[in-house]
């Protein structure tokens, strides 16, 4: 019995320092993160690396004004606009996509603006490819084709998270929308939307976006509120009411 006691003590004694080290390391990192030193955000994109000095919270007023070149669901002159920065491979973007479809359907005074925010570090290649494909759908089929592609992609990509079988899904969606496959391939391989997508990413980061989905609800008289993640419909509708 006496020989077991030291072993038990060693175990208990070791457990505590180990816990302290783990806790200390985690707390230190948390302090670094929250202590105001996070003034530099780097979002790696294949085309344009964005590295900007800015306030940790971002600047909501830096959101690029909505214009006719945007992908808009609803009336462009609606008093409330939800500008969403989204990643086709993010499962939570898929979730909020359904919610926003319902919100726009229920609220004619709300317009939904879709902008690109592919997270290359988390969803390499596929997020960017889907973003380019959606832009090509818009170029070749107009705004309706963009939304058909977007709704279809989120509906049929099942899990997202960079596991989508794009070689099957994208051609199927393009065929369903009625876009010429050859013209689509030319567009997708041209690289002409890379800068546009990079500009969207840059604007998302500038406004405070640190992940997807990142949305900004803009009301009349410049009232704006950010929306981080896939919020419930009730919260989104309350925000809409607040900014009106």
């Amino acid at each position: 019995m006496e020989t077991q006691q030291p072993n038990k003590n060693i175990l208990t004694t070791l457990a505590v320092p180990i816990s302290i080290v783990i806790a200390g390391a985690l707390i230190a990192l948390a302090v670094v993160f929250s202590g105001g030193t996070s003034d530099q955000v780097v979002v790696n994109q294949p085309q344009v690396p964005v590295a900007q000095k800015q306030e940790p919270e971002g600047n909501l007023e830096a959101v690029r004004p909505v214009d006719a070149n945007d992908h808009i669901k609803g009336d462009i002159d609606a008093p409330v606009k939800i500008v969403e920065y989204s990643d086709f491979e993010c499962p939570f973007c898929k979730r909020i996509h359904d919610t926003l479809n319902t919100v726009v359907e229920n609220n004619p005074n709300v317009a939904w603006v879709y902008r690109q925010f592919p997270l290359e570090q988390l969803h390499p290649v596929k997020a960017q490819r889907a973003a380019v494909a959606s832009e090509c759908a818009a170029e070749l089929g107009g705004n309706d084709a963009f939304w058909q592609f977007t709704d279809g992609y989120f509906a049929d990509s099942t899990t997202g998270n960079n596991r989508t079988d794009q070689d099957t899904l994208i051609p199927a969606l393009i065929a369903k929308i009625g876009i010429d496959q050859e013209a689509f391939n030319e567009c997708a391989n041209s690289g002409r939307y890379d800068d546009h997508i990079a500009a969207d990413v840059e604007n998302a980061v500038e406004t405070g976006g640190r992940g997807t989905p990142w949305s900004i609800v803009i009301g009349p008289d410049g009232k704006t509120l950010p929306l981080n993640g896939a919020q419930p419909q009730a919260a989104i509708e309350q925000i809409i009411e607040l900014v009106q």
Binding site: F33, P91, Q121, G160, P213
Partner: peptide, 15 residues
């Protein structure tokens, strides 16, 4: 959301 970079750990890694 680990997949979307909105949780604390991933933001720190991005940092």
């Amino acid at each position: 959301c680990a997949a979307c970079g909105t949780f604390l750990f991933s933001q720190m890694l991005f940092l």
